[in-house]
């Protein structure tokens, strides 16, 4: 497991220029969303959480579709499987690495959101926790689907096509919880959405780990 994680972080560190490009893409999409609403600061602040998560979601398809590129280039994944490294270990290593990369991206996009939409918040730990849970929820099925689509034609189209409907609950829960953190949460409803995120993570981190073996073996 440690070797698998080390491999993931080495690979990500060597391609860090790509992570910067993904961040620029995410920030640009946040800028574009505000043009869709118009210069109405109250409306922008109202929808800030939604825009943040949509930006993060769109950027995540770039990160996820790229994450199996290095594995397929020289069939390195097959090489590891033949060592043999357990597919489960490879899955969790990759899903964890994707979570961390998306989490950092999410944290980097928060200041952009605060500046563009005037959506400041003092509940920093809560927002951090939502970002961790939300990006974990995207990564768990996203990593599996990325492994699946990397074996198909038209991979760039298929990944969002399969992933977006699936993570509707993650998007809903993350947006709601973030909104409550920004706009105030007198009824303490945010924790209910966090519980949903935790449940989604629990289900998909275990289910995808079970299914990954069938996906990567011929």
């Amino acid at each position: 497991m440690i070797a698998a994680l080390r491999k993931e972080f080495l690979l990500q560190w060597r391609t860090r220029a790509q992570a910067v490009a993904v961040f620029v893409f995410g920030a640009t999409s946040l800028l574009l969303f505000s043009f869709a609403i118009g210069p109405n600061s109250a409306a922008l602040r109202q929808h800030a959480a939604g825009f943040l998560w949509l930006g993060l979601l769109l950027s995540s398809t770039l990160t996820l579709s790229e994450s199996f590129h290095a594995e397929m280039e020289n069939r390195a994944l097959e090489g590891l499987l033949l060592l043999p490294v357990s597919p489960r270990v490879l899955y969790y290593g990759k899903a964890l690495a994707n979570t961390i990369q998306l989490m950092l991206l999410g944290i980097a996009l928060v200041p952009v959101m605060v500046v563009l939409y005037d959506a400041g918040t003092t509940r920093i730990p809560t927002v951090l926790l939502i970002i961790v849970l939300g990006t974990a929820g995207i990564s768990a099925p996203g990593t599996l689907y990325s492994a699946m689509t990397s074996q198909a034609r038209a991979k760039q189209t298929l990944l969002p096509l399969l992933l977006f409907p699936l993570i509707v609950p993650v998007l809903l829960a993350s947006v709601k919880a973030t909104s409550f953190a920004i706009l105030g949460d007198p009824m303490e409803q945010g924790s209910r959405w966090m519980a949903l995120l935790i449940a989604f993570n629990g289900i998909y981190w275990s289910l995808c780990g079970l299914l990954f073996d069938r996906v990567v073996e011929d």
């Binding site: 599996l144 689907y145 699936l166 809903l172 949903l196 289900i203 289910l207 995808c208 996906v215």
Partner: peptide, 18 residues
């Protein structure tokens, strides 16, 4: 098969979240 299982498991979660 894998994609179908994952999508079907999602159905109740989507329902309750909506």
């Amino acid at each position: 098969s894998v994609a179908t299982i994952i999508a079907a498991v999602d159905l109740p979660i989507v329902y309750f979240s909506v």
